Amino acid sequence: MLAAARVGLRALFPPSCIACGEAVGSEFGLCGTCWAETEFARGTVCDACGTPLPGEAAEEEHVLCDDCIAHPRAWAQGRTAMLYSGTGRNLVLALKHGDRLDLVPPLVGWMARAADPLLHPEMMIAPIPLHRLRLLKRRYNQAAELSRALARRTGQDHCADLFLRTRPTASQKGKSREDRHANLTEAIRINPRRAGNLAGRALLIVDDVMTSGATLSAATEAALEAGATRVCIVTLARVAKAP
């Protein structure tokens, strides 16, 4: 009976591409065109940010992109699901500004695959925070939605309010690397009520997009100061050039 009902619903409402709405063969999928325009971070990737790199590396070899060599990261390892271009950029913007929370399950599926090498038992997952004024305007924190679903999918502990934004910060868009880092100075700290949960544990920080890494660096430094033993990061998308 239930199976028949599902078949009937699929006939009335066939699956559609999560990016453009064209008909596809399965739920939460991409059509051929949108798939081709999505730069997934697969194969050899930078061990610090997840950017795809040309060539092949040994399974245990840690390689870095030029950006992460020039600007060493505060965190230990990082991964991303895709590049911030084409369909990937459209999906990020739809989630961030288009109230497309229906995108969270498929996007988190991609993030879980990317984050798999970083995960281990007893690791905590937490999102980059929004300041309360921006949260009121946007109504939800897209990073928190992703981190909550990622923790549920991977079976890790989740702490949605581990970090606090101590002050509103100007948009990072159009700023230089130096200005981005200056903009985040003392803007992110550990929630005093959650500090005891973090001390002595590894942490995976989740954000939607990494550009310069300034926000992730600020959160990483706050976590290490609070006693985290190791900090890794995973993002939905990375602003970078394809290899």
Rank of each mutant, 00 (worst) to 15 (best):
L101V: 14
E39H: 15
C65Q: 01
G55D: 08
L107K: 01
P121G: 10
R132M: 13
T87H: 02
D102W: 05
A48P: 01
P54Y: 06
A81D: 00
A114Y: 01
I128Y: 04
R42M: 13
E56C: 10
G43Q: 07
L93F: 11
M82Y: 06
V92T: 03
V104L: 10
L53R: 00
L119M: 12
E56Q: 11
P52T: 09
E56Y: 06
A115W: 00
I69P: 00
C49H: 01
A112W: 03
C49D: 01
G78V: 04
E61F: 09
L107G: 00
V92P: 00
P106S: 09
I69N: 01
V104C: 07
C68I: 04
R100G: 12
L133T: 15
A41T: 07
A81H: 01
R134Y: 13
Q77E: 13
E39N: 12
G43R: 01
P117I: 14
V63E: 04
D47Y: 09
G88P: 03
K96L: 09
L107H: 03
M123S: 10
K96V: 11
M111Q: 04
M82G: 02
T80P: 00
P54R: 04
Q77S: 10
R113D: 15
D66Q: 09
D116P: 07
E39A: 13
A70H: 06
V92E: 00
A115V: 07
W75T: 02
R132D: 12
R100P: 07
P52S: 09
D99P: 10
H62S: 13
P121M: 08
T80N: 06
P52D: 07
L53H: 01
G98L: 13
N90Q: 11
P127Q: 08
D116M: 15
E60D: 15
H62K: 09
L103N: 00
L95Y: 05
E122R: 14
R42L: 14
G98D: 11
C68S: 07
P117T: 10
L93W: 02
D67M: 04
E60S: 12
P54F: 08
G78K: 03
A112E: 07
G55P: 06
G55T: 08
A126M: 13
L118G: 03
W75N: 02
